[in-house]
Design a protein around this nucleic acid. Structure first.
Lengths: 228, 228
DNA sequence: AGTATATTGGCACTCAGTGCCATTGTCAAC
DNA sequence: GTTGACAATGGCACTGAGTGCCAATATACT
């Protein structure tokens, strides 16, 4: 993964916005055209996944419907997995942005809560989120592909948290723990929100965080382990 | 994934033990032979991964060194990813077993703690854990492959937790939350344990759980969200 | 117009993964 | 010892993924 694509200058910021046509402020014409092709491929692919299934859709199919050559497909996405993980880049952007937005003195537990709520709402508002979740729920291989960039995501989020708590010793495990917690909590929220009504995601988020509190802060008497 | 392999009767319990030669109590001769081939392939593969890299190792290489045909490789493992995820089956077994071992009245927070410690120690004692972690740390594609069965793992663990808290309404999010928490905490523990000394993993586990407590149970004044 | 550069498409190649069938090995019954 | 049933293996051929290379085309800049 993470191969060098020839075509796009794919700066992460470029990929955050969806349509690539309007609101193209600081983008050159070339970049906007590339973005256009990229979303064309993505739209063609997700449509086909929904129509005839994830495994059954070949890259030839996608390229044909998107109106590009097979060879060009691989210049915009490294693989079919890469397509499903497309949203992960924007997701990582939301997360790091939300963490960075917190004031310096803000306790980490509060940074965690704010990040969870803000990112949940941002993703819930995004049309791509729903489409991807539907495909992932239907086809296990698609779900696996979607999560194929977890490592990169984790690294970026960890770096953002580490930046917030800068000034501690290097051996501190805090950034790792918050990152794991944040990502797993968000995953639970998305799943519950998607499976049930998909109404207001902040309600779901509150439920999940309340459950977490009940779980961790219940009895802390047994902080050290003794064998049974 | 999860294709039907022709050869092996691969019951999950069969795969938990490592060598497959000794301590073969309730296994037929055929099953033990299959297990032998399976571990031969696995050994050959991990050796090659360590020698010449994960991506550079083809399935032909693995089959040749293991002394089986290319076609037979695919009867024991569905893919190279499947090989890296081989340990996930035993891992899931450890987790469900640890959860089930807790007495019925045990509060979930305590089940969580016990499971984390027990599974961490079991995995740390297993020779395969170290080997896999070394490869995964070195090659990103291998790490990705290793996590390719997260969905199955999650389902099994969730089911085990749900069994423990049986008697609640179906809308309860608790099993989802504990599962996410358990898996992410264990991931942090393994990583920290592997990167640092790899001494006593229960020390690492205590550090991580202490960090978690500090994080979640810090100030709970802001249980409901208000926009800034 | 004319040149440098970016993008694309086509071709050929390796490797992953699968279906099909012939061969071999194993075990039991006769 | 032979025969027959059945599991395991190996070989072959095929589709699809992914990549390198080069020619053709489009775009930008002078």
């Amino acid at each position: 993964m993470l191969r060098c694509l020839t075509v796009p200058n794919t700066s992460p910021a470029t990929l955050v916005n969806e349509r690539g046509i309007d609101e193209a402020s600081s983008l050159t014409l070339q970049e906007r055209k590339q973005q256009l092709v990229r979303t064309a491929i993505w739209d063609a692919a997700t449509d086909l996944f929904a129509e005839k299934g994830y495994d059954e859709t070949t890259i030839d199919d996608i390229a044909k419907r998107a109106g590009v050559s097979r060879r060009s497909f691989f210049r915009y996405f490294t693989s079919k997995s890469d397509l499903m993980a497309y949203g992960a880049i924007g997701y990582a952007g939301y997360l790091t942005e939300a963490i960075r937005a917190c004031p310096a003195g803000c306790p980490l537990s509060e940074v965690f809560r704010r990040t969870v709520f803000q990112v949940a709402e941002q993703c819930a508002a995004h049309p791509r989120t729903r489409k991807i979740m539907e495909i992932a729920a239907k086809y296990p291989a698609a779900k696996e592909a979607q999560q194929s960039r977890t490592a990169e995501l984790q690294e970026r989020v960890e770096a953002a948290f580490a930046r917030h708590v800068a000034g501690q010793n290097g051996e501190d495990l805090t950034p790792h723990v918050v990152t794991g917690l944040t990502l797993s909590v968000l995953a639970v929220i998305f799943r519950a929100w998607f499976e049930h009504g998909q109404q207001d995601i902040s309600v779901t988020a509150n439920q999940v965080l309340a459950t977490l509190d009940r779980l961790v802060c219940h009895d802390k008497s047994q902080g050290r382990r003794t064998d049974d």
